[in-house]
């Protein structure tokens, strides 16, 4: 056997650096993240602070104009972007963690545990999530960003669980797992110490997809009026713009920029994801 002198991490980073999709996606995402972090520094207004001027087109003072309620659209967009990113991150993280834990346990333990967990997963898959969300949202009077992330995270894990279970099933009969069993390692130890680390790259990909999914989910909820009762998000801006006929009244600056940012954000995440897929899957990797 040829001895490899390059470590796997190094090789992975090398291919990441060479992959155009990953690079382009990361650059776009970094730009959007930068906008969310430093954007608020460039406006004196808060997202829900009346400026006294209604429906003004973009100008030096209001880079994205103002809306019917005299709010500064730029301020709303950058603050809204912050909360959308936060919802995406938290919601995606919760869904990924739950999905991995359930998939891992079901796949490795098998038998009754598997049957029960997969039944639960299938129930979550088939019940109309939106209807459930409407009910939950209707019962919680005060809804903040955290609650919204939690609701999204708790309802979007099932497909991750199924995919992780399939991965676990194929890993658990690999020889090194059998060797660990013969070495007297407990089931928990094998799941956490042997199988899970081998799914690390897969988990990152899942998280990226869940991140994007959660953002989109939040926009949908906001749009239906089930979003945060307080605060601002990209979805809420869009909802209000549509509700108050922004486009029909010619106030494009109220609807287009937040919509565009959502589209770019999702595009960046999916580009990173397909690029990562190429890096991690040698069959898709092009040799020089």
């Amino acid at each position: 056997m040829e001895q490899h002198t390059v470590s796997r991490t190094k090789e992975f980073l090398h291919h990441i650096r060479r992959n155009r999709k990953v690079k382009a996606g990361l650059a776009l995402f970094a730009a959007i993240l930068a906008l969310a972090i430093v954007g608020p520094l460039f406006t004196p207004y808060g997202p829900l602070e009346p400026t006294g001027e209604a429906g003004r087109p973009p100008s030096l003072e209001h880079p994205l104009g103002t809306n019917t309620f005299t709010y500064d659209v730029y301020a709303q967009t950058v603050y809204g972007l912050r909360s959308s990113l936060l919802i995406g991150f938290l919601g995606g993280l919760i869904a990924t963690v739950i999905g991995i834990l359930i998939g891992l346990a079901a796949g490795y333990m098998g038998g009754l545990v598997d049957e029960f967990l997969m039944m639960l997963t299938n129930i979550f898959l088939v019940i109309p999530t939106l209807a459930l969300l409407i009910v939950i949202a209707a019962y919680i009077e005060y809804r903040g960003i955290m609650i919204e992330s939690l609701i999204i995270g708790l309802t979007s894990w099932p497909w991750t669980a199924r995919a992780v279970r399939a991965q676990t099933l194929s890993l658990k009969n690999r020889e090194f797992v059998l060797v660990a069993r013969m070495s007297g390692a407990s089931g928990l130890r094998i799941m956490v110490g042997e199988i899970l680390p081998n799914m690390f790259s897969y988990a990152i990909m899942v998280f990226i997809l869940q991140f994007g999914g959660a953002i989109l989910y939040a926009v949908g909820l906001d749009f239906l009026g089930l979003g945060p009762t307080k605060g601002i998000s990209l979805g809420l801006i869009l909802q209000q713009a549509v509700l108050w006929n922004a486009i029909q009244l010619g106030m494009w600056w109220w609807a287009i920029p937040p919509g565009l940012i959502i589209a770019l954000l999702l595009a960046s995440l999916y580009t990173i994801n397909t690029g990562m897929d190429e890096v991690l899957n040698p069959r898709l990797r092009r040799l020089e």
Binding site: M1, R8, R174, E175, F176, L178, V179, E194, P197
Partner: peptide, 15 residues
């Protein structure tokens, strides 16, 4: 105890 055919898959690549 047992040992297997494929030496490379008998060891967890990440450890």
């Amino acid at each position: 105890q047992g040992i297997f055919q494929d030496p490379y898959s008998s060891f967890n690549p990440i450890h």
